[in-house]
């Protein structure tokens, strides 16, 4: 049995007095794509954002229970959040390149984490990241152009390149294809599949078909609880819980 890279035990999350997640136990296995699905407001994004402490930005948000990465408590006060986010990268729904050149977008994380001491090393790292994000061939001759001059799908792959540049262990993706057309979506999905050889990916998606296509494990959240978690094939063919069945088949529960 492979040890989980991320492990949640009894995780409760509150926004002020409102509880958004209830007693979540969930293990994320390395080199797998884990999809988090469920209706809006079910807590899946809240859980995703808890993994790299994006919720710290919301003063009213409080997390209790145990959430660890490689056995280390993510919420230990001694944890350096910037270092944590180098280990746990994030890609958002809307591509959000910095208002800088393509090169600078990818080099940014390497610079702030001081991961590339020499200029040539920095260039190598940027090229490697763009290669692995499947973008190099499209941008290699215009690295000095603004990141936001690219198409939506290219911008999203630029954000993925930026995330992998610092060689995180885990990449969190919050509906990364919802703003993309089907072709750009297919390119990103193909990329996700090749990235899982090196990284662990946790993805929130509203597309059941996407979850079924790209993930190996699927977690279904409903009203703040983790209802069912297991192999993607099982969740989408023979879910155990009626709430899961109702959700994935679009039935009124």
């Amino acid at each position: 049995m492979v040890d989980p890279i991320i492990s949640a035990r009894g995780v409760d999350i509150f926004y002020d007095t409102k509880q958004a997640l209830f007693d979540v136990d969930l293990d994320i296995l390395p080199n797998k794509v884990t999809a988090l699905i469920g209706p809006s407001g079910c807590g899946k994004s809240t859980f995703l954002r808890a993994i790299n402490r994006m919720n710290d930005l919301i003063p009213s948000c409080r997390v209790s229970g145990s959430l660890t990465i490689d056995g280390q408590d993510i919420y230990d006060p001694a944890v350096d959040v910037v270092a944590l986010r180098a280990q746990v990268g994030m890609v958002f729904q809307k591509p959000n390149p910095f208002p800088k050149s393509i090169f600078e977008n990818v080099a940014y994380g390497l610079k702030i984490h001081k991961l590339s001491p020499s200029k040539s090393e920095l260039q190598d790292r940027v090229e490697w990241s763009l290669q692995n994000a499947g973008l190099w061939n499209e941008v290699s001759d215009r690295l000095d152009q603004p990141g936001n001059s690219l198409s939506g799908g290219q911008q999203q792959r630029l954000c993925i390149a930026r995330a992998i540049a610092v060689q995180p262990k885990v990449i969190l993706m919050d509906e990364p294809c919802s703003a993309l057309d089907p072709i750009a979506t297919a390119v990103v999905e193909d990329l996700i599949d090749s990235l899982r050889k090196e990284y662990t990916i946790v993805i929130v998606t509203h597309s059941m078909q996407q979850a079924a296509r790209i993930s190996q494990r699927t977690a279904f959240f409903h009203l703040g609880t983790l209802v069912e978690f297991g192999d993607t094939k099982t969740i989408f063919t023979t879910p155990k819980d009626e709430r899961t069945q109702n959700y994935i088949t679009g039935r009124i529960g």
């Binding site: 059941m208 078909q209 079924a212 989408f236 063919t237 879910p239 994935i248 088949t249």
Partner: peptide, 8 residues
């Protein structure tokens, strides 16, 4: 409809 599970 891209049916899933029992629908499929």
């Amino acid at each position: 409809r891209q049916p899933l599970a029992v629908d499929l």
